[in-house]
Nucleic acid binder design. Structure first.
Length: 465
DNA sequence: CGTATTTGACCCGCGC
DNA sequence: GCGCGGGTCAAATACG
């Protein structure tokens, strides 16, 4: 129902858009966009993409080359899909939420282990560009839903990146910039990179998806909390995809979890915005991840409703609606027009079991890794990539946009990172509300696709069984 | 034949 | 000290 509603709204908006175009230039809407709902239901794919997702092209290639092997499909998709890729696919039989940060670096698998609590092996990758590169990548399937990958990056590149990799990084960050440029809100965030390399110089909210572009640690805010023993590269600007906080009208650009004295005020402000929050006013501490995918009680009490990742995800939905209802009609900073479509989309996403599974796994890993202080889930990559198939001309355009959108960033030699920032450091603030965690894709440029090429297997990491 | 992957062994930190 | 678990090494193996 929500999907249908989304599609109806989308089509209505699209028709309105074409009507406007018609009035101005006599442009007819393409027939492909005038499809009906039943047609949509045949292969509903809503893509939230940064960059290019050439599923249609992939289908063509598939016809030509008849790629039968999954690994080949994966490689092709990896090559055609730009780095930051967020998809929500809905079909009658399967739904997946993929939050993929393709790092693109040429990596070599150097180990595989069965981790406790997850029957799926965890694979370890390292860069082949420089053997001494401390950057590590871990890939593991979600125990709850094996179609979901949990990718963890640790460390940063300590070597210059190849030209193509740099270009890729620029492309990716530019793609993010394009998305960001559509945002109408400034980012008030609870920001903490788990990568150590993450700094916050340019927080930008993508309606709840907060991105950061930053240059290096010199620009880090005073409340930056170093988290990793793996020191960031001094020349590693990053983009942080921050899932922990909402957009807000606050003039305060940051929401620091390392300022306990400021925490409650900020937290309340966040709670009052249209945020999805994992926090609760009744909750005094954070749920603590333990093991793989299991949240258990730690030394501090917490609301028992948070005992599982699924409850966490459910809490997202509940809090979102709670906040939305509270704020409906009085949303701040231009968000009064928040369409029902978005609410429906958000509910559709957050009520989806698989999405919850993915989100819960990500959260678990985020928090868990945070405790060890150096890793990130789904995507902090701090280096350019080499194995993408994008065209450089496209990249040049992107780079131009990027330099315009982020004059303060450092396109040259940039390392692009996209980190899911994590929640409140419960060890640092023991009597404060937990940090808000936001997932509110309210204005991401949805792109519909008729492709059916995106199957769960398409997003598998190679050699993960 | 060069490169990448596999996989058992090993190392190390941590808790008991 | 011991066991456990996570991470890494490196020889064997697979692959193009």
């Amino acid at each position: 129902m929500f999907s249908e509603r989304i599609m109806k709204d989308y089509q209505r908006l699209q028709m309105q858009f074409y009507d406007i175009l018609k009035q101005e230039a006599n442009v007819s809407p393409p027939a492909a966009h005038a499809n009906n709902l039943s047609e949509m239901e045949e292969s509903e794919i809503i893509s939230l993409s940064l960059g290019r997702c050439c599923s249609d092209q992939f289908k063509k290639d598939e016809k030509i080359k008849n790629l039968g092997k999954d690994t080949e499909n994966e490689e092709l998709i990896e090559g055609l899909t730009l780095a930051l890729d967020c998809k929500f696919e809905a079909s009658k039989t399967n739904k997946i939420f993929i939050f993929r940060m393709n790092d693109g670096c040429h990596r070599r698998k150097y180990g595989q282990k069965i981790a406790k609590g997850n029957p799926c092996p965890r694979a370890y990758y390292r860069s082949t560009i420089a053997p001494s590169c401390p950057l590590r990548k871990q890939v593991q399937r979600c125990a709850e839903d094996k179609s979901i990958l949990i990718i963890t990056y640790e460390g940063t590149h300590n070597h210059p990146l190849p030209l193509a990799a740099t270009a890729m990084a620029s492309t990716t960050s530019a793609a993010a910039s394009m998305l960001i440029s559509g945002s109408t809100t400034s980012g008030q965030v609870l920001h903490q990179s788990t990568m150590g390399s993450t700094t916050t110089s340019t927080p930008t909210s993508l309606n709840g998806l907060n991105f950061y572009l930053s240059n290096n640690s010199r620009s880090r805010p005073p409340h930056y909390l170093p988290t990793s023993s793996l020191a960031p590269s001094p020349s590693s600007p990053t983009i942080t995809l921050d899932l922990t906080a909402s957009s807000s009208s606050s003039s305060h650009p940051y929401f620091s979890r390392v300022l306990p004295s400021n925490f409650n005020t900020q937290s309340q402000r966040l709670m009052s915005s249209t945020s999805l929050s994992f926090s609760s006013s009744e909750t005094n501490s954070m749920p603590v991840p333990w093991g793989n995918g299991i949240l258990t009680s730690a030394t501090q009490p917490y609301n028992k409703s948070y005992t599982t990742p699924f409850n966490l995800a459910r809490q997202v939905e509940e809090n979102f609606y709670k906040n939305y209802i509270q704020k409906n009609g009085s949303l701040v900073n231009g968000q009064q027009y928040l369409p029902d479509t978005i609410v429906a989309a958000t509910k559709a996403i957050t009520s989806d079991q698989n999405f919850q599974s993915a989100l819960a796994a990500a959260l678990t890993s985020i928090i868990s890794n945070n405790r060890s202080g150096s890793t990130v889930v789904h995507g902090n990559q701090s280096g350019g990539e080499t194995n993408f198939g994008q065209k450089m001309k496209w990249d040049e355009q992107i780079q131009a946009i990027n330099s315009t959108a982020y004059p303060s960033s450092t396109p040259k030699g940039n390392n692009f990172g996209c980190a899911s920032s994590y929640l409140n450091n419960r060890r640092a603030s023991t009597n404060s509300q937990p940090g808000s965690l936001v997932f509110l894709p309210t204005s991401l440029p949805f792109a519909t696709s008729k492709s059916s090429s995106s199957t769960p297997g398409d997003n598998r990491e190679a050699h993960i069984n």
